[in-house]
Nucleic acid binder design. Structure first.
Lengths: 180, 180
DNA sequence: CCACAATCGAGACGCACCGTCTCAATGTAG
DNA sequence: CTACATTGAGACGGTGCGTCTCGATTGTGG
């Protein structure tokens, strides 16, 4: 619908604004000005700021190719995955985009649905895939139990888990697998 | 600082607007108009919308006296506590106030701090107290592990845990207590 | 190579809310 | 009763919203 160069400039503008001027700069007017694009062009391709942010984040995550994990133990692979997630949530410009989206999903159910489908579900699937690859039985809530405390801390702006805490957490949750 | 009747009218206005018109009606202008109060009076006592919402929520929670829990088992007491928390997070007008605050803490660290101190910490303390009363040893992360998935689901607007899921969840987390 | 239609950047428009301010009316205290 | 502080009301300039109208820039078919 929009020219490829327009999409690229809009994505770049969003990252630039997030990095340099924070969440309050992520407005339709601000993005249009930074990208050198008319507001109408923006509205033609996206119906809101969150819609732009989803696209910018996903384009960015596709650009960074996922480094193929070496064959470590399951807990270690999970630790690397969750640590990467923490890194992504706390490093600019991603952090500002994700905070802005997290705010938006509290105020709008449709944005929440899009968040779950496009950002949360792939994250959960990665964890789920690791568990299935490891050929150990696990209860259905394991994936949620692994991710929820990480997300909880980020959401409350508490200090994130460090590698040691992550290892401990993962081992605790995996221990539930062998419970009666 | 403000007249008691003014505070009461502001709190009532906030609840009324949350119930009838949703999060987007919770503006300084809207609250002032609904309460029949000048904007300057509002700014004299609170420096932002979130500040008003904290006060309104806490005034409300003090009004509803906590029903003294009967002496049930620990898991059952925890279940009642978490179920009450879910109820409070999903029932209007509290739900709209809490969503508005959850959005604000993503965009402002100071609001996040106030949220942790005035709403989150008391919640965690209640759980912690129940655990200490029960004279069973528990690792330091138990409280967080109990609450995080509940909060995670609410935050992502996923279906909340029902009483059965809550019981299962609590038993799983408590089982970690007896682990090596 | 050109003419035509679609798309574009730019920004004006009316609206809502922001935070600050003035002011007459209301309330309080001496 | 008077003198003073606080109040409700709303005007003010600023900013972003979403819609709209423009010429100017595209890229396409003849």
């Amino acid at each position: 619908m929009a020219r490829p160069s327009t999409v690229a400039r809009v994505h770049a503008a969003v990252l630039e604004l997030a990095m340099r001027r924070g969440p309050s700069a992520l407005t339709m007017e601000g993005i249009a000005a930074e990208a050198g694009v008319g507001k109408q062009t923006l509205y033609r391709s996206w119906q809101s700021v969150p819609a732009i942010l989803f696209d910018a984040l996903l384009a960015r995550s596709k650009a960074d190719a996922a480094p193929t994990p070496p064959d470590e133990s399951l807990p270690e692979r999970l630790r690397q995955l969750l640590e990467a997630a923490v890194e992504e949530m706390t490093t600019e410009p991603n952090a500002t985009l994700l905070r802005t989206l997290a705010a938006a999903i509290q105020l709008d159910e449709l944005t929440a649905r899009e968040y779950r489908e496009r950002l949360l579900k792939p994250q959960l699937n990665e964890i789920h895939q690791l568990l299935r690859d490891a050929d150990v039985p696990f209860p259905p809530r394991t994936t949620e139990l692994l991710l929820a405390p990480v997300f909880y801390r980020w959401s409350m702006r508490l200090p994130p888990m460090n590698p040691n805490e992550l290892s401990l957490h993962i081992n605790e949750v995996l221990a539930l697998t062998q419970q009666p």
